[in-house]
Write a protein that binds this DNA or RNA. Structure first.
Lengths: 147, 147
DNA sequence: ATTGAAAATCAACCCTT
DNA sequence: AAGGGTTGATTTTCAAT
């Protein structure tokens, strides 16, 4: 993780669909070298993936919930991730301390949609039961990826 | 915005670097038609952009917690906001249903820093007590534009 | 970093509704 | 008009060097 990697990350955070030529230009590398670096950053886990930023307004997803999930057995984080990554309503997921196994932040169009999405979560692999808290109003939200 | 657009969004949320052939396969379109649709979604603002998901561990502040706060009396959302906006460790805050008055998402450098920040939360205005859940590992995080 | 074959992009075009 | 398919020149990817 040096200044070149930082340049690559900055570029790809700004536009995940940038070509290797563009990334390389930003980092002072040839396209091939840029690809090797980026592949390495993904493989090492420094970059977890690439995603689209969807406008919640146009999807009209303004119902939020925090959902604690309790699992049967001892699922590994990898198993949990595999079960959750295909549910687009899950915008954040992490394993936590305490009684619950994981905490999810979910985003849905409305309460029926949220209920459906939570049912999908409950239906996946190791999930036993869930405990949800519905968001009534957002007080503040700070951007937290500064590159 | 129809079922085809939704399929495209689902695909590109999962992997922003997917090729048009992959996107089209998922949406039942030819690569060219997939490109036209995706370009339209970007142009219309439904998709704000594409970004890389950077591992929070590589960021300076990598200790996270979800904190439920319970208040004395009936504080208004505005009062809660006023009390919390000066604590930079609070990256998300919202009022919620259930026993708690609000749910905070907090980000700190380490456990001692987090403890200090939670103490500051507890010390502010209407806050009576807190109930914290420490994040052990992040499973996934989808960037989203907040409203 | 360069090379070159394979793949993807993208605009122009045509077809259907 | 609006939207999907097809074509082909250009650009990008990617493994070998």
């Amino acid at each position: 993780m040096d200044t070149i990697d930082e340049a690559i990350i900055r570029c790809v955070v700004r536009d995940a669909r940038a070509t290797y030529a563009e990334i390389g230009k930003e980092a002072g590398l040839s396209p091939s070298a840029a690809k090797r670096r980026l592949d390495r950053l993904v493989k090492s886990g420094a970059i977890r993936g690439f995603t689209a930023i969807v406008d919640p307004q146009s999807l009209a997803w303004h119902t939020e919930a925090y959902v604690e999930i309790y699992c049967t057995g001892n699922p590994t984080p990898a198993e949990l991730l595999k079960a959750l990554e295909d549910i687009p309503e899950v915008v954040d997921a992490c394993t936590v301390s305490g009684a619950a196994d994981a905490m999810l932040h979910m985003l849905a169009a409305d309460i029926p949609h949220l209920e459906l999405a939570i049912q999908r979560v409950r239906a996946t692999g190791p999930v036993d039961r869930t405990e949800s808290v519905i968001v009534l109003s957002r007080l503040l939200s700070r951007p937290r990826i500064q590159v």
